[in-house]
Nucleic acid binder design. Structure first.
Lengths: 204, 204
DNA sequence: ATACACCCCGAACATATGTTCAATAGAACA
DNA sequence: TGTTCTATTGAACATATGTTCGGGGTGTAT
């Protein structure tokens, strides 16, 4: 997420906090110092493609930043990230972490537990909880969770002229090329990391 | 408040819960089985006069139910961990992370923002939030926040026959010996790490 | 160089949406 | 009965708002 996108998101959140409803496109333009609504719309479209915003086409002020804790169940913790196959299956839910309000824009998000050191140079270590925000697209350079030939993995997504690659953050591992023959799927974007050290703070 | 007004208010609340934004006047009309927007507007005017609704004239979907819930401020985020001196002072609070229920057993705990790469080999990077549980003693080998000669720092605590040391987790830094001449204080134990979005990603 | 993602502008367009107003219906009351 | 008040209606109005289009700019990666 670029600096500008960060500011935009913050503006929307602040506006909603102040007024109880979301800003219109032109109000955003004024607030961000832009002079054309189409500029703002383009920015919103990008944010929406990234999965950090929800909106309804044609509906005024439908940006959905906050809202609506459903039950206090919390966010499910699903499987070990390397274990594979049926992510999302109910049997794999290892527990819940009630951090819901903490990520206001995160409908449908969940935690994965990191296994292995393939992302250690990004400071992502085994046992860490990574929060995954489901989305269909992910831009090059972002970290996300992917399903490659049935195997779930956390990597940096890289798209070049030579194809798509999943990059580890560890010199001991090789970049993984994604070819046409592979079954490949973006599970979601990595938006947050949570690491629990001492025991005695059990959340599950 | 009449029965009808009660239902109207409930409809607005439900709609907002479902969609993340408030209904338009015509959506209310449809949802309430009324056939004219002006009917709804009259009802809204009455509710607003009673003070249970807030809206901005001429602004689409600006219904904001008056909520009197005091917001859970959450856990304070205090200073940069390297910045030093008056931790806990009000001026240093950079914001709040509403993870209150998340750590119910952690009275007095707070977040520090990591600055610098001295703990990078433990996967603790600049921009990370570390949750500090205040305590007076800490056992050797644990990570904690310490105040050494006025300077606040996050290190691994090590107690050997040769004395007490604060160990960084980075080859570029040297272990810091703690002598009798130093003013030294344990601030608390490092309990949890939390990393948001794309902060702290730059690796050296 | 090319390609691409991001950022910006201004104008025009379509419609979603709040507002106003005259008219009607019903209830309460003398 | 009539009067008065409130609730409702349907139409028309004004504008707030999302959207589209064509154009241009910048920076980065290839």
């Amino acid at each position: 997420m670029t600096n500008k996108q960060e500011r935009l998101l913050q503006f929307i959140l602040d506006f909603h906090k102040d007024n109880g409803y979301s800003p219109s496109i032109r109000e955003i333009a004024k607030g961000m110092g832009v002079s054309s609504p189409s500029t703002v719309k383009a920015m919103l479209d990008r944010l929406e493609a990234q999965g950090v915003l929800n909106r309804s086409s044609g509906v005024a002020r439908s940006l959905a930043p906050v809202t609506s804790e459903e039950e206090d169940l919390g966010i499910p913790v699903i499987g070990r990230i390397v274990a594979g196959t049926p992510v999302m299956a109910e049997e794999n839910i290892e527990g819940y972490i009630p951090v819901k309000e903490f990520l206001k824009n995160s409908n449908g998000g969940f935690f994965l537990i990191v296994d292995g050191y393939s992302m250690k140079d990004k400071g992502i270590l085994p046992g860490d909880y990574v929060f995954i925000q489901p989305c269909k697209e992910i831009s090059s350079g972002q970290i996300g969770a992917f399903r490659l030939n049935g195997e779930v993995t956390l990597k940096t997504f890289k798209k070049t002229n030579e194809g798509v690659f999943l990059l580890p953050a560890n010199d001991d591992f090789e970049p993984i090329p994604v070819t046409e023959d592979d079954t490949f799927e973006v599970i979601g974007r990595y938006v947050m990391l949570l690491r629990l050290r001492e025991q005695g703070y059990k959340f599950m």
